[in-house]
């Protein structure tokens, strides 16, 4: 039996446009539930998932202020997954593609995200039992 319990994910979609984003996060959450160490390589638009300046807002059509609306922010999901991994003593490494960050000007990432590049992606993939790539469609 292969004792390697690390999975690497590469993801390309930005926050707030695609239903693939929530599916991706649910996969990460489920992987942690299964006791799996996680590496994420955020590529292209996905580097905005951890942008620290994301802010909640109220919604007049929903008749709720910002607190009541409790708008989902992907940066909070990343932090929540990192905290869950720590509690379960699992590794959770999130790498933003640095060139993609520069293109988009989203340099201010939350603490749970680090800056890297394709070489880091390869390092993660080479040390994982498998790699799931979720490209933009």
């Amino acid at each position: 039996m292969n004792q390697n319990n690390t999975l690497t994910f590469a993801f390309m979609d930005p926050p707030f446009e695609s239903e693939r984003t929530i599916t991706f996060f649910r996969l990460l959450d489920s992987a942690l539930d299964m006791g799996v160490n996680i590496n994420v390589f955020a590529y292209e638009g996905a580097v905005a998932l951890g942008f620290s300046r994301q802010q909640t807002h109220g919604n007049g059509m929903h008749k709720r202020d910002a607190d009541e609306e409790n708008h989902p922010l992907t940066k909070n999901w990343i932090t929540s997954l990192r905290d869950k991994a720590e509690r379960k003593k699992l590794n959770f490494e999130w790498i933003n593609c640095g060139l993609c960050v520069d293109e988009r000007g989203v340099m201010e990432a939350i603490q749970a995200c680090s800056r890297g590049g394709p070489a880091d992606f390869w390092r993660c993939a080479a040390n994982s039992v498998n790699t799931l790539t979720i490209g933009t469609r």
Partner: peptide
């Protein structure tokens, strides 16, 4: 509502409400 780690959604989408609007 979705749960991601400890984050729990409190206001999931309500299409019925939106069409009622």
């Amino acid at each position: 509502g979705v749960r991601i780690g400890d984050w729990v959604q409190t206001q999931p989408a309500d299409i019925t409400r939106d069409l009622a609007n």
